[in-house]
Structure formats: C-alpha cells, structure tokens
Amino acid sequence: MDVANQLVAQGQFRVLKVPLGFIKVLEWFFAIFAFSTCGSYSGMFKMAVECKNRTDSDLGVEVQFEYPFRLHQVYFDAPTCTDGSKERVFLVGDYSSSAEFFVTIGVFAFLYSTAALAIYIFFYEKYKENNKGPLIDLGVTGVFAFMWLVSSAAWAKGLSDVKTATNPDEVVTMIKACEEKIHRCHEVHDPVMSGLNTSVAFGFINLILWLGNLWFVFKETGIIAPFMRAPPPQDKPAPDAYGQQGAYEQDPYASSQGGYQPEYNQQGYNQEAEYGQGYGQQGAPTSYSNQM
C-alpha cells in the first residue's frame, strides 16, 4: 500500500508514522539542534601571568569569545610586568564564514522541513497532483543533502581552527611578558567545546537523514513504479509423454471389444498359442492310428 492509500485509510495526520513523514520530522528536530548548538555558543578561557614583581601579576586573565567566531576582533589586556602597565592582545583568525554557512543551512533546512510537513498533512492530494510536488521535493531534498555535506565538512575544519586559536597554551605565546623566562605564564581554564562538537555531529546526522529521505521521496514520484511490477506468470511445462500415457499404451480397440485379450509373458510369446500348438502336435498320431 503506498503513502496515499495509507493516509486515506488511517487519516492525514498519520503521515508522521510513514517513513516519508517520520524522517521529515527527524530532519526538523536535528536541524534545530544543529544551528542552535552552533549559533548560540559562547566560550571563555583563563590564563595566569605571574610576573617577577608580584604586584604586576594577573592570575585571572579572562578571554571570552562567541559565535560567529571572528576571533581577530576578540582581545584581552595582559600585564607587561613593568610599572603595572598592560598591553592589548588580539586573537588570530576569522572563522565566521564556515560557522555562518553551517547555521544558515540549518535554518533553511528547518524552514523547508516545516513547510513540507504542513503540505504532507494538509495538502497531500495537491502534493501528488500531476506528480509535480514529489519531483520538486526530490530536487530540494537532494540539494539540502549536498549542502549538509559541504557545510558540515567546512564547519568541522573551522571548529578545528577555532580550538587551536583559543588554546590557552597557544595564546600565552602572544603575550610579550611571557617571552621572558623570569616571568611564568600558564593556563587556568580551558574553553568548553562540547557544544560545538555536538553541532558537528548533528550536521553529519542531518546529512544521513536527508540522503536517506531521497529514496522515500523518489518512490513518491512514481518513476520506479513500472520497474516494480510483478513478473508475468510462467507457462506450465508440457506434461511428460511417459508420465501422462504410461510406458505402454493399451490397444484402443481392446476396450471397445468385450472379447478376451491374450496375455504375454516377459519373452513376448503367446502362452495359449504354445499350448494350442502342443495339443495339435500330440493329437496328430492319435488320428493316424484310428485311420489305420
């Protein structure tokens, strides 16, 4: 039974239980998770700069950064360990392009999934009319599957660069006071990246969902229907001549004549004929003696 018949038999809202609608619901949820975990991220890390003169030290240099990760605009003030003055230090890198591209794909995927679910539930007959709806759905689904692949791969690379640029061990090397061995610099708190790692995982999960949904949308187009017809019934093999008629056929005249039919032994001789010939041979001398 196809999706249309199932919806008629079970009600339109039951579209959420068939693969076409159920996977679309999963796409809707995971698209939200993908762009929200990335777009709402804000992180922080701390460093400590211990100067030779303790009064110039700063044990809580805090650096905050957030989406869209234009790190070259993020700065902090670090002690110079001379006369209590401080210097302004900027982070390195701009990773907004990959992050914003990933979030944009997630938002548009969410919007399209919402619209597709509304059409499945309330306008499914219009969706199937002239087969235009499934064909458009197939094309858009293929585009989103490709976009999830590109954006997830780009954001995975961008996240790797963000982790490097916000690593406190790397950042302290940009502080001039830390270049002198008489001062001691070290990290205090690493940034928590679990949310960003989850966003990358959600991106590839969306890729799998949209690729899998291509098959179910393709089935709705009906393109594959002519190739899925049942094969024609095969002709029954002709009955075996020996199986149908037996090894030997009876004489067709035997059944019509009610007379006695002679039997033949294994050598094919007529036993009665043998007995008749023997009787005739024995009777000949008798008749001859009578004549004498």
Rank of each mutant, 00 (worst) to 15 (best):
F102W: 01
P134Y: 13
H189A: 15
L214K: 00
T55M: 07
K163I: 05
S160N: 12
K157E: 14
M193K: 04
F35I: 03
A116R: 02
S152H: 05
G276V: 03
G84A: 08
E27V: 06
D161K: 12
Q257M: 07
T164W: 04
Y112F: 15
D161A: 15
F69K: 01
A78D: 02
F30P: 06
F102R: 01
D240G: 15
P237K: 12
E274K: 06
L91F: 10
K157M: 13
P68N: 07
I205T: 14
A115D: 00
F45C: 11
F108R: 02
L59V: 06
L71M: 06
A225V: 04
V200W: 09
P239A: 06
Q271R: 08
F101E: 09
L7K: 00
K132G: 02
A230D: 12
Y253R: 05
S160T: 03
V200S: 09
M193I: 08
A238V: 07
G21Q: 07
D94S: 05
G21A: 09
E125H: 10
A154I: 00
W215M: 08
V63M: 07
L196A: 12
G84F: 07
C185N: 03
Y124T: 01
V172E: 14
Q6P: 00
N130G: 02
L7F: 08
F29L: 14
A284R: 07
P262R: 10
N206R: 02
T198C: 03
A241P: 04
A115C: 09
T286V: 11
I121E: 02
T286C: 01
G278I: 01
L20K: 13
G195V: 00
A34Y: 02
N290A: 13
S287T: 06
Y112T: 05
S199W: 07
S256W: 13
Y242Q: 11
V150F: 14
T80I: 02
G11N: 08
H186F: 15
L149C: 12
L111E: 03
D169N: 15
M292I: 04
E187V: 01
T80E: 12
K52W: 14
S113R: 04
V107A: 10
F76W: 08
E125F: 12
S57Q: 06
R70C: 07
Y67T: 05
N130Y: 13
V63T: 07
D240Q: 05
T141W: 04
V103D: 07
I121A: 14
F76A: 10
T55Y: 10
D169Q: 13
S152P: 01
K52Y: 15
S289H: 10
F65D: 14
A230V: 10
E87A: 12
V150C: 11
G158R: 02
Q244T: 13
Y275C: 00
C38Q: 07
F146D: 03
M1P: 04
F13S: 11
P19Q: 03
L196R: 05
S287L: 09
L135K: 14
T104G: 15
